[in-house]
Simulated scan of single mutants.
Amino acid sequence: MSATFTPDAAAPLDAEAPATRKVGPLLLAPSVIVLLAWMIVPLVMTLWFSFQYYNLVDPTTHGFAGFDNYYYLVTDPDFWVSLENTLILLVAVLVITVGLGTLLAVVFNQPFAGRNIARVLAISPFFVMPTVSALIWKNLLMHPIYGVFGAVASALGFQPVDWFAQLPLASIIAIVSWEWLPFALLILLTAVQSLDHEQREAARMDGAGVLAQFFFITLPHLSRAIGVVIMIETIFLLTVFAEIFVTTSGGPGNATTNLAFLIYARALLQYDIGGASAGGVVAIVLANIVAFFLVRSIARRLEV
């Protein structure tokens, strides 16, 4: 006798399907709840404190402040200086890392002796912690007496430069660029390696020189990767803190004070939690505005 299939035999399997679909969200619920709490609770507390008078060394100062903390923030000259320093740091590091990263990606894509070792050495600074990087540059490289740069300048007959006193913001830009250049190089080198060799060979046979191949073939191919590098670096460069804290502490004066360090100074040096929270809210708004436009720009490029 041959077995016959009946609809009743499949009924138990169909009955289990809705139960399985109900279990999935329940298993995900704890992770989603923890993630939302981890993001929302600090944000809500920061927003709440930004509307309160709250000073750590003066318990008598308390109560609803309205928009006073925001008013004092935007009327403080240090705020606008810190905002300017943040933008200068951001643009300068992006120009250096994207520019040098593109050139190094093209160079490291060419065959030469010791290429693999050179790639590892070029990428390795990205894995050094920001605090350690700042200490290396401050004490071993840029120190006017004991640093390598000072020794080289003295050997050539020049006066050593006190980098963090004479060129403080440029010094921070150099340190942060050294940290983020390997990241840009890694992304752009991967993009260069995905370029069709037949396309470049055809251009070379048509008489295109090295510069023409770079500007009309390699650079357009790297546009998406460059957009991704700019987006990711921008989000992190808006919150640079460790390098400034270790080297200059925002000085001399406020020459290297960015928005992140200004918030730290308000909270833990001036003990003004309300003012620091207002600065944090402003920083969140600015970061989200920048991220919104960057994501839209990257999405349009990916659709092309």
Rank of each mutant, 00 (worst) to 15 (best):
M1H: 05
T4H: 10
T4W: 07
F5K: 08
A10S: 07
D14N: 02
D14L: 00
A17P: 02
K22S: 07
V23C: 00
V23L: 00
P30W: 03
S31M: 12
T46G: 03
N55S: 13
T61S: 15
G63K: 04
F67R: 09
Y72G: 13
L73E: 08
T75P: 03
T75A: 07
P77Y: 02
S82A: 13
V91E: 07
V93F: 09
V95N: 11
V95M: 13
I96R: 09
L100D: 06
G101E: 04
L104K: 01
A105D: 04
V106K: 01
P111C: 05
A122C: 07
P125Y: 06
V128M: 04
P130W: 13
L135D: 13
H143E: 04
I145C: 02
I145R: 08
F149M: 10
F149R: 01
A155D: 13
Q166L: 15
P168Q: 14
A170L: 15
L181F: 05
L189S: 00
V192D: 01
Q193A: 03
H197I: 14
E198G: 15
R204S: 14
F216E: 11
F216D: 12
I217R: 05
T218L: 04
T218S: 03
T218K: 02
S223I: 09
I226Q: 05
I230G: 08
M231S: 06
I235V: 12
L238Q: 07
F245L: 14
F245G: 11
N254G: 10
A255P: 10
A255M: 13
L262C: 10
I263N: 05
S277Q: 03
V281T: 05
I284H: 01
N288E: 08
N288S: 10
I289V: 08
V290E: 02
A291N: 01
F292P: 02
F293H: 01
